[in-house]
Design a protein around this nucleic acid. Structure first.
Lengths: 336, 336
DNA sequence: TTGTAAGCGTTATCAA
DNA sequence: TTGATAACGCTTACAA
């Protein structure tokens, strides 16, 4: 690949002039600029980003650190980040599947000199410590962090409120025996949604019943497995809140196999509102969250952090979680 | 952030020695190495990747260029790439949502100096031209390219064979009137799957019937819409091949609303075998492809291309597409 | 408006 | 085994 020197030589100018042309400096004659463009095109020249970052100490890139995520959440967050980054002329470096703090810190270090800041999804308690270590050397935006780090920019989802709304909906429909399928232990989303569930029950005077809190792990398979357990519960619940849609899908499938009809025998409400929620049978009532927006917001926040003169400035943003009523909860209990 | 000079000063050595320590050079005394490690740890030092790439002219990073993709395909490919890259100690730069060649070329240029090679998913005819332009300056691996570029490393999916197998399955079950929901025009996957469908019919002496080739765009919504069209077809098809699972989901939902039961009134076979295919009702018979492996293979191919002494060397790999029989096609037509 | 030259943080080539 | 020092390709004062 040609360098700036090749272009300078070909255009009969100094390398400084070539640099000016490529950086859109106004202090360059039109004729000269044209000669430079032509030479650059001929030589198929483009500035070397590494060299550029070195002199400017700005990389025009951001890094993303993620745990081992699957499915729509993962893809939509990345899409959101990628799109917002592109609009801001930033590049995106990704490193996912981090199971513990050491891996995350190693990934962050490896990005040193390559990124101006980092977006970190550390929802698992196991990766919390990484945030402390990384934040000492790099501007950070946290996505849905497992703990609230005081001096960080944070974008979160309204998990608690969303879960409360989901359960309140079931209560409104006349249900009293409401079970929940929990997410993985140590995951902040899982935990907040569980708390929202308990709170909604408590508010109407129902004491959360431990046997109704069934363990899942956010996968379809775990939802499928729980169907069997569910029918053995006494008193048998009339409704169940699955803390994400994937588990709802598995559950629906399991219930179908068991001959339990939804919503007549059992009402089901999910969380996330993934694309296909509306195409399930019955269409799933669930809590909508905008994962794409989550990614976009993170980039915006990082940008404002990078531009701000005050590096200690920090803001926290929470994205709404709103109930979307479809058919999986029916229209109320016929018999009380 | 501390630089190599700070560490050298703190450890009382030259910068060359610090560099040697961080690059695992054997030619350095144990005592010295320890002093350097300690100083580095104290100062929280880590080598600047941009500077490193500049001197070595190797970046230890690869770029990924993608069109506007959603859902599981997107996330699994990236996961595959990310994992394989991490094993090879490579970083991953992502740029997605490219709708045309100019955008792709711009993204590739912006990565100049940041990546050693590129993985490009250019399945759309609209982005084909970008491949030609980019390949002149950067080592490339193509994922499922819309045209077969002779001098490129390519990993593809066995779309044709997979589609043939899906339709052959329907034929085996006694179906003769088999419709198809096509993917977006100009998309290679869509096209190859359509060709496989036609071929399977032709092979048993059935002439493909144009009215049976319904337009979809790989989204759930398009599958949903087609349900209505489908029932108005004469002769009414007894089976339908949807060229991806998302459309099958939409279709299933639409058929359910119309009171058409699967597989009794209509057999449905999909393509992709996304995670939730098995949890649909009925569980979807579909063609399994390993998207995660697609990403991994691409990285491996790029690596071998980068290491190979012969830059013109190129290999093409095709990943299998195998039928997974579940319940959405039933067990054969009761009445012929 | 253009050119010269210093410097960004490394690695790599020599010497010592 | 270590240390000077010249690149690497670029941006940016400062001069002209």
């Amino acid at each position: 690949m040609a360098t700036i020197r090749d272009v300078a030589r070909a255009a009969g100018v100094s390398i400084a002039t070539v640099s000016r042309v490529f950086n859109g400096s106004p202090r360059v004659g039109e004729q000269t600029a044209n000669r430079v463009w032509n030479a650059a095109t001929d030589l198929d020249y483009w500035p070397n980003s590494a060299a550029r970052s070195l002199t400017t100490s700005r990389t025009q890139a951001l890094g993303v650190l993620l745990p081992d995520l699957h499915g729509e959440f993962f893809s939509e967050v990345i899409r959101g980040i990628d799109l917002a980054a592109r609009q801001a002329k930033l590049q995106v470096l990704i490193s996912s599947s981090h199971a513990n703090s050491d891996e995350m810190v190693a990934a962050a270090r490896a990005m040193h000199g390559r990124v101006d800041g980092l977006i970190v999804l550390a929802s698992e308690e196991a990766t919390a410590d990484a945030v402390d270590r990384i934040s000492r050397s790099t501007p950070l935006v946290l996505l849905n962090p497992c703990r609230k780090f005081a001096e960080c920019n944070i974008v979160s989802l309204a998990n608690f409120a969303g879960a409360q709304a989901a359960v309140a909906h079931l209560l409104d429909l006349g249900h009293r025996d409401i079970a929940i399928i929990k997410g993985p232990t140590g995951n902040i989303d899982a935990d907040e949604r569980l708390q929202g569930y308990r709170q909604a029950l408590t508010m109407v005077g129902i004491t959360p019943f431990p046997a109704y809190e069934m363990q899942g792990d956010f996968t379809e398979l775990s939802g499928h497995r729980v169907a069997e357990e569910l029918r053995r519960l006494t008193p048998r619940p009339t409704a169940v809140f699955t803390t994400n849609d994937c588990m709802a899908i598995g559950l629906l499938s399991g219930l179908h196999g068991l001959g339990i009809t939804v919503p007549n025998d059992l009402a089901v409400v999910g969380f996330d509102d993934i694309t296909m929620a509306r195409y399930l049978s019955p269409p799933l009532t669930t809590v909508h969250v905008d994962t794409f927006e989550l990614g976009q917001s993170a980039v915006r926040l990082l940008l404002s952090r990078l531009w701000s003169s005050d590096p200690a400035s920090c803001s926290q943003e929470t994205l709404p979680a709103t109930l979307v009523v479809r058919s999986s909860c029916g229209s109320g209990r016929s018999s009380s």
